[in-house]
Design a protein around this nucleic acid. Structure first.
Length: 205
DNA sequence: TGCCAGGCCCTCTTTAGGGCCTT
């Protein structure tokens, strides 16, 4: 069974190494491309949210006052994901926070990450840019809530992943665009994309 | 004190620099 978990973090900044912390996490669980479950939680890491982050996300310090602790939310998120491969838009960012927040509570973060940003750069070089919102508009996918909130962004990334898998089947003839192929595709050079997809097309034929 | 992300990718490149993308 093809099972993937699309994840998105809201945070106080861009670098956990510089003290930035997660403020919200959302995960959309997909089986065979269909949403089968969701997890979403604000989390209180005991740090102040910079005002420009509140302007960006709408998440305020007051909203975190009664939120679960970061330890509680991350433990729940870890249980929810299990060993399911994760998917994120600009996965390098979400992977940093996934690893940093789980390390704080001594939990492993060994799940592989699929990146819809890298995949989109390879498959849709003609897109005006590769921001999540722009790609949603480019593919005429549904907006699923307030942008820059974790669940809305995770849902949009899930729709984008669905579009990528659809296009791999319809435009590139790949019968089963499973996570291993997606990871090969995001790692290979741009010049090697066509060759890789041709190999998978011939395997499927 | 002053500084402060980092991986990917393009190009007027490779002995480098800068834009993109995430919050």
């Amino acid at each position: 069974m093809t099972r993937l978990a699309v994840i998105d973090f809201e945070t106080t900044g861009i670098s956990p190494g510089q003290g930035d912390r997660a403020t919200e996490v959302a995960i959309v669980l997909l089986e065979q491309g269909r949403v089968v479950d969701r997890y979403q939680s604000l989390m209180n890491a005991g740090v102040r949210i910079p005002s420009f982050i509140t302007q960006l996300t709408g998440i305020t310090n007051a909203m975190l006052t009664d939120a679960p602790s970061a330890a509680q939310a991350m433990a729940e998120a870890s249980r929810f994901v299990g060993d399911t491969p994760l998917v994120a838009h600009n996965a390098a960012f979400d992977r940093k926070f996934w690893q940093a927040e789980l390390a704080r509570i001594d939990l492993p973060a060994t799940q592989p990450f699929v990146c819809t940003l890298l995949l989109s750069r390879r498959l849709y070089p003609q897109a005006p840019n590769h921001k999540l919102g722009s790609l949603v508009d480019y593919h005429r996918l549904p907006r699923t809530g307030q942008a820059h909130r974790a669940l809305a962004d995770a849902e949009m990334a899930a729709h984008l992943l669905g579009q990528i898998q659809h296009d791999l089947r319809q435009r590139w003839g790949v019968a089963t665009p499973h996570s291993a192929l997606l990871m090969d595709l995001q790692r290979c050079s741009k010049a090697a994309v066509d060759k890789l997809l041709a190999q998978h097309r011939s395997l499927a034929a």
